[in-house]
Design a protein around this nucleic acid. Sequence first.
DNA 1: CTCCCGATAT
DNA 2: ATATCAGGAG
Length: 213
Amino acid sequence: MNEEKRSRKILDRLREEYPDAHGSSLDYDGPIQLLVATILSAQSTDEKVNEITSKLFKRYSSAKDFAEADRDELESLIYSSGYYRNKAKWIQETCERIVKDHNSKVPREIDDLVKLEGVGRKTANIVLSDSFGTNQGIPIDTHVKRLTKRLGFSEAENRNKMEQKLMDLIPRDRWYEYATLLVSHGKRFCKARKPKCDECVINDLCPTAFSHG
DNA sequence: CTCCCGATAT
DNA sequence: ATATCAGGAG
């Protein structure tokens, strides 16, 4: 079976398994908040991020709020997500730039988004897909990277090359679906440490099933 | 490549 | 004790 057919069968089967997997599981109201929440989600869990943003967005909610926030207070509010100094700096510099150069609105083009401090292609693609409903790329996070490698669709190298490979393999209208379904599956079964291949609904389509020790 | 960094699972 | 969590910058 060729890669296109195998990838299609995998997506179809995962869609049955996760019919409710739409977009991110982050809590937010509007593009700015999604952008902030996604910056916070680096090397953290979305559960932890939601816990933080439930308080954070009551204190600061607009780009202007974050741009003018007290750095120490912002750091203390996001402390438990890790990388709190970098993240506070990124959130503020990004929001300052959005207020000054983008009329306080989150840019809708990926080339503009990735110029913002702390915003890479993964974060940009999530905001574009989840908040604006466009698909200019595929967000490659730790789950998508791990599952893509295990499924044999790309040799991990770096995330940009993997994204390009997947953009060639997957039909454009399923790019974001690919990412969200692999994240869902990665969290529940195809875990980094002890993948549950015996319970996996696509183990017959996976070249590395039952070989993870 | 290294560094940033706390919380949680194993 | 160590690996991992919807990464990005230098």
